[in-house]
Structure formats: C-alpha cells, structure tokens
Design a protein around this nucleic acid. Structure first.
Lengths: 236, 236
DNA sequence: CGCCCAGTTGAGGACACTCAATAGCGGTGG
DNA sequence: CCACCGCTATTGAGTGTCCTCAACTGGGCG
C-alpha cells in the first residue's frame, strides 16, 4: 500500500485547511472532546489509482473517511469472479466493520487518486462511551452505506447492458453535477454491472457513436443526461 | 396490514415465554432499564403471508424484530419492475431507518407467517442516551444488514439462472440446516434473482427432474446440498 | 522501435426473454 | 359432489441479448 502522509483531517470534512476537529461531520456537535493520549494518530493519507487501502479478511483498527477520489469495494465469488459491490465517494466512510472488531468484508481499492483520513477505532470507542450523539452519527454512516448497497442491487443488476451503463454514468454525475465523469477500465465497469468487458466496451462504443457521451479530455466524459435518463428508465 | 396482538416480546429473543426484557439481544447487558412511561407499548404482532408490515416512504416511529418467519424487502425500479433486495429471517431487525427519522426505504412484506416485535423508537432513543452499550448492539444490526446486502449483490445477481436458483435455495437452508426449505411463488423468486418467472419455473422444473430438489410436502423442499453447491459454484 | 496491455470489433452460439398456449390447483357456488 | 372460475405454474417456439473465443488495433512505456 503506497501512502503519502499529508496532514491531519477529519471525517466528512468539506475543506481541510480549517478542519481540525471542530467542523467535522462525525465529531461535530460533541463537547469537550479530548484528543490527547492516542496510541495511533489520526492522519490523512493519499492513494494512487489501483493501490489497496485494505484487503478482505484483515482485522484493522482503523476507520476511514474518503476526502477525495473514488474507491471500489470488491467481493470475490466462489467461482473466482470478482464483483464490485459499491463505489465510495467524497465524504463516505469505509471500514466501519472495524468498530465491531470484525474483519473488513471487502477489498478496498482506489480507482482514482484518493485522499483519506484514518481514524483509530480506539478514539471512536472512547468518544462514543461519553458522547451518545456520536452513535447517531455512526448510524447515519451505516444507513448511507446500506442505502447505496440496496440501490446498486436494484439499478446495476437489472435491465439491459445499455440501461446499466447509462445508470452508472448518471450515478457518477450525481456527486459532481455538471462536471465531466471519469471513465474507468472496462474490466472494472463490467465488475460493477455484472457484465463482461466486451459487452461494456461495445455498449460504450455505441453510446459514443450516437453522441450520448463524448470524451471531453482523457478518460473524462460529458454526458447527454436527458437521453441517458431515458435509456436508464427503459423508455428507449 | 393485518395484525394479531399476541404478547410482549423483545428484540432477537429466542423464546418468548421467559423473554421479558432481560434476555433480549438488543437490550441485553443494559443495567437499570426503565421501561415505564412508554407512550407506545412494545408488542408482538403476527402477519399472514403477503401482508404488508410497512411501505416505502412511510415515516414510522417503530423498529421491528422478526421473531419468526420470512419477510421480503422490495424496491421498485423507475421502469415499474420490482426487485427483492433482501430477505429477513429469525432475529433480524427491520426499519432501523426510523431511528434516524428517515422514511422506510422498502416495502416490507411477509412471505410466510410471521411474528414480529414492535419497538418504539422513543424507547431506543431514551436508552441509547444512557447506555452506550446499546449503540454497539445497534451497529451490529446495521452491519448484519449491510453484509447481507453485499452478499445478495454478489450471489444473486451474477451467474446463470441455475447458479442463482441453487444459491438461493442454499441460502434458505442456512438458517435452518437440515430442515426442508419453503418454496415461494415464481414471481417472488424471479424478483429476488433478477430473472423472469418463466426462467425460474424452467430452472426449478429441471432441478426437480434431475432429483436435486424434491417436494417433501406442500411447498417444502428437500435439497441435494452437495450437488447444489457444485452448481452454485459453477463446477457443473 | 517494439513490446505489452487495454480496448475494440467480429462471428458464432448459448442463454434468458417474450409472447402465447396449456395444465394444475384451490376456492366458490350451484 | 361436481362444475366452473381464476390464478399460478408449466411448457413451447422464436427472438434477442449477452457471452465466448479470437483476432486485431492503438496507446503508453521501456
């Protein structure tokens, strides 16, 4: 795992510079937080594309918040195939399982350049003993993950290849409306959508030919959202 | 919603008779629990097959624990199709979203006869303010739901129809090993596996013809687990 | 410059979907 | 008790989509 220490930062923070402790999402609203006496410091690390944050089965003592970038959570099927179960974006939390002393249930692998806060479980445990408000915040994180999981099951596992690709592209714009959308490797796209790389390739080629997507710059797409929506919903 | 009040019971309880408060899973380990002054009582209700516990979008003030039976969580796609996102079994928790003042994100509908505990959110909120241990229990519930969701995404949305059906049947035996497995309507099975009713029907007919499943009694199957495992993993 | 990997494209076939007709089951009423 | 109805499950034929296997292309990098 290639990590580059940068600076101290916190869960769900919008901007890093003035973020120290107070403004944080997870720790927001807590009074009298004592951050002293940590065995393990909180830090902010950077990951290159395709580097591994953690592996399935590892028992970490760390929870992560994604400050910037995209991370894939990967599961492996008995037949050796892999399936990308979810993508995490800005301000999402990873590795909550560590709070329950459970091994991580996926591989977490960077898809783009990522900046990630590492929070020691011990800190969360200590604070949650004193501050019941933290419990609410944590549950919100769990809930968000579950809602995403359900959505992936419904949207990216049903319908034709065209529909699934369209839905995924639209999903990617949601986080950053108006911005161009990063395009991933065909293999990753296939693993997200339950399709083969060839099918994804063909589908994207066709969308490009009909002008619904255009390569603005290197691996950056601009979308015809209206038409893609119609495809996603099966109108076309 | 057809409900039949039965008796007071608690989250995750194994047996109802001697369950009052102490032995409960969610409330286990809490000291000095004061159950007085509840606006809304805790009760145990029963549901008939295909009756609705709650609907998507409703804002309930209740969390549920399934004591007995099977419940499907249903999502609806933009194109009108429905997808069963998860099945809940004995001792699973439903409606945790109510704790966060969120609307329920699915329809919850009974597949079999069900017995369900209803727990007012107000009680959980009050207790979690005092007892940090409850937070841990709640997170465990969230984690369990998320793990199931991920599993459904991996197992029931990839592979051939044969594989998916085999995996689902095996999943159903896990909760009650050795016991016969209930067989649902083909439409429900299709919605669980992302297949059409016809495909499910054909697949099950073929499994029955080859003797891998046998109808022990009315809608109760006995399985050739060994062979089904081989199918599930794509060895056949 | 040439290698290597990722993406594209093609041909053929397998699988699941669609539409449609039939069979089976359970309930109701004569 | 049987006849009839309605619903669900089954089965069939034909089609379409996606998968498989394989060849080819092109860009990035040593």
């Amino acid at each position: 795992m290639k990590t580059i220490p940068i600076r101290v930062a916190w869960l769900g923070e919008q901007d890093c510079r003035d973020c120290v402790i107070r403004g944080s999402a997870l720790f927001a609203g807590l009074q009298e937080v004592d951050f002293g006496a940590l065995h393990q410091p909180i830090e902010d690390i950077a990951l290159q594309p395709s580097s591994v944050l953690y592996r399935i089965g590892e028992r970490g003592r760390t929870v992560f918040t994604l400050r910037h970038g995209l991370i894939k959570l990967v599961k492996y099927l008995p037949d050796g195939n892999q399936r990308i179960v979810r993508l995490l974006q800005h301000s999402d939390t990873l590795g909550l399982e560590a709070l329950l002393n459970q091994p991580y249930p996926h591989d977490a692998i960077a898809l783009t350049h990522c900046e990630i806060c590492t929070i020691p479980v011990s800190l969360v445990e200590r604070l949650s003993r004193e501050q019941s408000r933290l419990c609410q915040e944590l549950m919100t994180r769990w809930q968000r993950a579950l809602a995403e999981a359900d959505r992936w099951l419904a949207e990216f596992s049903t319908g034709t290849a065209r529909q699934r690709v369209a839905r995924l592209l639209l999903w990617l714009t949601e986080a950053t409306p108006g911005q161009p959308v990063p395009l991933f490797g065909r293999e990753d796209l296939g693993a997200m959508l339950g399709l083969t790389t060839e099918t994804v390739s063909r589908t994207i080629a066709e969308l490009r030919r009909t002008g619904l997507i255009q390569e603005a710059s290197h691996h950056q797409l601009t979308l015809d959202q209206l038409e893609l929506h119609r495809i996603a919903e099966g109108i076309i």
